[in-house]
């Protein structure tokens, strides 16, 4: 119990208080301490990433081994991962000169880059269909949402300057309205949210430091 719960909480409190206090001390040693702790955390973070790699690999291997539904597709995960690691290790050990083809780079450039960009870009369609389906001025709130969206959408493309010059005789007219929305009501809301988030984050940190919040420890005991 002491080893599994009390001691970790004590560590949290001690290390957290140190981090807190050292922010107010200008002494060079205090800076050294912060810097040294940051490098420690970076190294631990490196191990943490390994954790992610391992658990995903493990999951797909289990899927293939137990022949779960759709396990055939997991084989492709395996092919991709092993292929990349093998070519990468080859590059590290043997070395790939500038003129040769680095298959590791090739995989990155022609598989990872296009896939990531494409899946993300599907959002363009979704954003359009969501706007089309739901932007209806049914009441005041919905009307404001719709109005602000349309003005900002229009105010951010070059054509609005041409239209502004044509309709209002001032190229910047629509841009100015869009900017005013961004600079005043949008700023007000974002600032309010920021203050709220700030308070919530501090409250969370306080709960962690005092051991009130301990979900992250996981497990029942």
């Amino acid at each position: 119990m002491f080893l599994k719960r009390t001691l970790p909480l004590l560590i949290v409190f001690t290390i957290g208080s140190l981090a807190f206090v050292h922010d107010f001390i200008p002494h060079p040693l205090s800076g050294e301490f912060r810097s040294e702790m940051a490098s420690w955390m970076m190294i631990i973070g490196g191990f943490g990433m390994f954790l992610g790699v391992y658990s995903l690999m493990h999951m797909h291997i289990t899927r293939i081994r137990q022949k779960m539904a759709g396990w055939g597709y997991s084989v492709f995960v395996f092919i991709g991962a092993v292929g990349m690691i093998a070519t990468g290790v080859y590059g590290d050990i043997v070395g790939v000169s500038k003129d040769d083809i680095d298959l590791f780079d090739w995989g990155y450039k022609y598989i990872q880059v296009p896939c990531g960009a494409t899946i993300f870009s599907i959002l363009a369609f979704f954003v359009a269909s969501a706007a089309f389906r739901t932007f209806r001025a049914k009441n005041m709130a919905a009307g404001l949402l719709l109005g602000a969206a349309v003005i900002v959408m229009f105010g951010r493309v070059p054509i609005c300057e041409a239209v502004g010059g044509w309709v209002f005789n001032d190229r910047q007219a629509i841009v100015n309205v869009a900017n005013a929305i961004m600079n005043y009501p949008n700023l007000a809301v974002k600032r309010g949210l920021l203050l709220g988030i700030g308070l919530a984050a501090i409250a969370q940190s306080v709960r962690v430091l005092f051991g009130v919040e301990r979900t992250y420890l996981g497990g029942a005991d």
Binding site: V53, Y73, V77, I79, G80, A81, M84, G88, C115, G116
Partner: peptide, 24 residues
């Protein structure tokens, strides 16, 4: 599905290599 899983795999392999190359 094939494309998506291949992507996951390549991303995973890339990550594994970079945890090593750029961190550890």
């Amino acid at each position: 599905k094939i494309a998506e899983n291949l992507y996951v795999g390549v991303a995973l392999g890339y990550m594994a290599m970079f945890v090593w190359r750029q961190a550890l």
